[in-house]
């Protein structure tokens, strides 16, 4: 028992319950900031009837509270992973194959990117020309993207994600 009266081992065990419930093949997105799972799930382009589980406000040693997403029989594309990183920087992505972690990736927002989101400035030239936006990350916490064309700064909670991933 530590000062706070909590047993860190027990907390870890509780975490494990969520993390390792048997996924034969698929993706686990862990360490999502609490409250971001629904939004992160919404940017994924899953095939119809693809099973997905969301865990919300789970205990986490690192974050206090965290969200988690598990998807069966689906591996995220690079674009989807980048979108998730924009919503929740420093989440972790695990690709599960044959009941074990085949690959684990620490997500980070891209420094500069084309597309993924659209500029929120109605009078930005990208809209009338029908071209994908270009952005660079202007600050990290919260993630703020700046449009390379019109200069508009957009914070993460205002991101409008492209539909066609």
């Amino acid at each position: 028992m530590n000062d706070s009266g909590r047993d860190p081992g027990a907390a870890r065990n509780r975490e494990n319950v969520y993390e390792v419930s048997k996924l034969d093949r698929g993706t686990v997105i862990d360490h999502l900031r609490a409250g971001t799972a629904v939004r992160a799930a919404s940017v994924l382009r899953l095939p119809p009837s693809c099973p997905m589980m969301l865990g919300v406000n789970l205990e986490s040693e690192r974050l206090g509270r965290k969200d988690i997403i598990k998807i069966r029989h689906y591996e995220l594309s690079e674009e989807e992973a980048a979108k998730v990183a924009l919503i929740s920087p420093d989440a972790t992505l695990s690709i599960i194959r044959d009941f074990s972690v085949a690959q684990k990736i620490d997500l980070h927002p891209p420094i500069a990117f084309r597309g993924l989101i659209r500029c929120t400035n109605d009078v930005c030239i990208t809209h009338s020309e029908g071209i994908r936006g270009r952005f660079f990350v202007a600050s990290h916490d919260p993630v703020t993207a700046a449009c390379e064309y019109c200069g508009r700064h957009i914070t993460a909670d205002h991101f409008e994600f492209e539909k066609n991933a």
Binding site: N121, C124, I125, T126
Partner: peptide
């Protein structure tokens, strides 16, 4: 000169 922002960069 253009009324839309970012026109010159484009």
């Amino acid at each position: 000169r253009h009324p839309l922002e970012g026109a010159a960069r484009l």
